[in-house]
């Protein structure tokens, strides 16, 4: 393994360790200990929190901002794909020629599109007063790193980037992830569980069909 690969692996290990520690701690902390009598199903509330409540029809943040919403979805898919590809690129780089070119180019093109969505979100943050008002350096750095990993992954797939740049970008992202905004990949799930628990036991979720 080259020095830059070792650096990326150590960063990934650090990232996974810190996020796992946070995960274990959150699980240990558990849900609020409610003493009131429930009036609905916690289980159904939590299921709805991850399903119907996430539907674009249910959220103004989605249906009133469709381009941003769709851009965000594409961007997040691109992020997950890039993260999933990291171990394959690291461990199977020498076997990459066995993968059909077509597949590599399509994936690279898709990642280019998702990284453009990330760049668009960045531009929006820069030009929108409401966002600039409460954005910090972390918001910009997280966005840059998450966009960058998609760009370098795309280039790596088509053998158009120096591996040093790819692994350095990955290492930076892994180091940043547990500290910066990117850690919401973990907190998102706990936020949804807590909401489902809250609205479920109060009988608000799942909502009754309006007529």
């Amino acid at each position: 393994m080259e020095w830059y690969q070792i650096m990326a692996v150590i960063s990934a290990f650090l990232c996974i360790t810190l996020l796992t520690a946070k995960l274990v701690n959150l699980i240990k902390l558990g849900l609020p200990k409610e003493l009131s009598q429930p009036n609905g199903s916690v289980k159904e509330g939590i299921i709805y929190s991850f399903t119907g409540a996430m539907s674009p029809k249910a959220k103004e943040s989605a249906y009133m901002h469709l381009p941003t919403y769709l851009g965000g979805i594409v961007y997040h898919i691109g992020t997950f794909v890039s993260l999933l590809l990291f171990p394959f690129i690291l461990l199977l780089a020498d076997k990459i020629e066995r993968v059909p070119d077509m597949f590599l180019y399509i994936t690279a093109a898709a990642l280019t599109i998702s990284s453009m969505a990330g760049a668009g979100i960045m531009v929006k943050r820069i030009v929108t007063d409401n966002l600039r008002y409460f954005s910090s350096a972390d918001d910009y750095i997280s966005n840059i790193l998450t966009t960058a990993i998609q760009v370098v992954t795309a280039l790596m797939l088509i053998d158009a980037v120096d591996p040093v740049l790819y692994y350095t970008t990955a290492a930076l992202l892994f180091v940043w992830m547990p500290f910066g905004k990117t850690k919401h990949l973990l907190y998102f799930f706990f936020a949804r569980v807590n909401l489902g628990y809250f609205y479920g036991r109060r009988g608000t979720w799942p909502p009754i069909k309006k007529n």
């Binding site: 959150l26 902390l29 558990g30 989605a62 919403y69 409401n130 850690k183």
Partner: peptide
């Protein structure tokens, strides 16, 4: 206070997308 996961979760979950403004 670490009574439950709600505090830590809500202190770390906002991505500052600003899409809640019009709500």
């Amino acid at each position: 206070r670490g009574d439950d996961s709600k505090l830590e979760t809500n202190m770390n979950a906002c991505v500052k997308c600003g899409l809640c403004a019009e709500s």
